[in-house]
Computed example of a mutant assay.
Amino acid sequence: MNSRSKQLEAFNRLLDIMDELREKCPWDQKQTLESLRHLTIEETYELADAILENDLGEIKKELGDVLLHIVFYAKIGSEKKAFDIADVANTISDKLISRHPHIYGDVKVKNEEEVKQNWEKLKLKEGNSSVLEGVPKSLPALVKANRIQDKVAGVGFDWEEPQQVWEKVQEELSELNEEIKNQHTENIEKEFGDVLFSMINYARFIGVNPENALEKTNKKFIKRFQYLENAAKKEGKELSNMSLPEMDVHWENSKEFYK
């Protein structure tokens, strides 16, 4: 791996390139904080995909794209005389030091859970009016639910045992089923949301990231369905003309390849 001096040299090279592009490239000159926002979100999702695929080469590439965006935002900030890349780095460094008194102070912690609890308490001392203040409004609902539950657990608002959470899942499923039986349309969505929320909470208790778990299932389903499509083509058939039992044969075969 590269030495620290080589790492700093590479980062300095990126900063120099950013300066030059901002000065000479018509596209880069036109970009604003707002115009980059949706591109940053896209790059973050591409990084997330690479991580799930455990493709280290692709992760390196996507990290570079994300880093470029950070440097780009900082460049625009410096032009506005609001902040530069040094301010960005120093701000996060200061935060890390203040949020880790067990490393940079005299606070003692027993485990990861106590670190998380101290983190949330420190955020409140820093001026946050609510533990949930830092949850982005634009997060996808599944990710947001997981973050909400994780944050309130950080200040002790949590179940004690996984079995208690599983019983809550069963309770919410029963309530949903009751609303479906009674055809209370206005309540079905509400109860379905409660089921999802409780399942996400249970996932946290058994050490599963629900977003990752669902995305892995999405990817598995896509691969299996594409296997089914290809198998049908080899037989000269269209899926729309096949019966469910015919399709199910290929679907079951796909499980041998994509588990």
Rank of each mutant, 00 (worst) to 15 (best):
13 R>N: 14
15 L>R: 14
16 D>F: 06
18 M>Y: 02
19 D>E: 14
21 L>Y: 10
24 K>I: 04
31 Q>F: 01
32 T>C: 08
34 E>G: 07
35 S>Y: 01
36 L>E: 11
39 L>W: 02
42 E>D: 08
56 L>W: 12
62 E>R: 02
62 E>P: 07
68 L>Y: 14
69 H>G: 10
69 H>V: 10
70 I>A: 11
71 V>Q: 02
75 K>T: 05
83 F>V: 03
85 I>S: 01
90 N>G: 13
92 I>R: 06
96 L>Q: 10
98 S>K: 13
102 H>S: 09
104 Y>M: 07
106 D>M: 02
106 D>F: 02
108 K>N: 05
111 N>E: 01
116 K>I: 03
116 K>D: 08
120 E>T: 07
123 K>W: 10
124 L>W: 06
125 K>L: 15
130 S>G: 03
135 V>L: 02
136 P>C: 07
140 P>N: 09
142 L>S: 04
147 R>V: 15
149 Q>S: 09
157 F>N: 13
159 W>S: 14
160 E>F: 05
161 E>F: 13
165 V>I: 10
185 T>P: 01
195 V>G: 10
199 M>C: 14
207 G>A: 01
209 N>T: 04
210 P>H: 04
213 A>T: 03
216 K>I: 06
222 I>A: 07
228 L>P: 00
231 A>H: 06
234 K>T: 00
240 S>G: 11
241 N>T: 09
245 P>S: 05
246 E>Y: 03
249 V>L: 11
254 S>V: 01
257 F>C: 04
258 Y>A: 03
